[in-house]
Design a protein around this nucleic acid. Sequence first.
DNA 1: AATGGGACCTGCGCGC
DNA 2: TGCGCGCAGGTCCCAT
Length: 266
Amino acid sequence: MPELPEVETIRRSLSRNIINKKIISVTVRDRRLIKEPSLAEFKKHIKGSRVSEVSRRGKVLLIGLDNKKYLIIHLRIAGWLIYPQLQKKARVVFKFSDNTFLNYMDQRALGELRLLEDYKQFSFLKRLGPEPFELTAAEFSQRLKMRKTNIKNLLMNQEIIAGIGNIYAQEALFLSGINPQRSALSLNSGEVRKLHKSIVAILKKAIRNKGSSIDLYRDTQGNKGGMQECLMVYDKKGQPCYHCKTKIVKINIAGRGTCFCPQCQS
DNA sequence: AATGGGACCTGCGCGC
DNA sequence: TGCGCGCAGGTCCCAT
């Protein structure tokens, strides 16, 4: 579900709401989600701590605690967070001393929660590529260089660039007029620059619109995002292209549905 | 290095 | 109405 813009929307809302709050209890209703350390350790170290910061790397949420540990949340496909009311369906609940609740929700239970001292050693974060907004076109071009894989897979490869998933990869390619099946190697420098610009533009627009609510995603207050209204190709199979009216086509790339306009994207 | 398949999960919509 | 199937915003692991 959540890609960079959705996670950033959550981050902003959490940093407005839970900074300096003290966690007085942790209820884990689904222990499969707690990846490390042990469940007992996880609870023990969180209980009694205070939230000192809320940051983000790619699609990963980093909640810093005043005991120098970090609560690392990866929402994967269907995770989301609700604050402040206690939710019946929450799989993990953090209760604050002011009687508010941070609820970790996840229809598919694929998300991951960790409590780490040194989050930079967490292998996923260690390997994670640069933040899109901190990446220049030249660096982006360097990272794509000599890669034979199709460009869409590379955009979704978190080691190349962090935060892009199946929705925004498709949208960025549409904005750039690039066919998702093209090999990265085949892109000329003008196309790479255009793609870089499109990625930044689509992610910023999505953040402004508080993310895309295709299905379950909600912000921490339970509100839908607005970006789904602005998507040009994602899930638009058979519909006319906004530019040329050609029917949008859906294909499968590495097991993921991929929509594009066969006329505008070459 | 790159690609393909399956695994992890749950729930929805579709066609029959 | 009910069932089986395919599919869904992500990532890892294994085989080739």
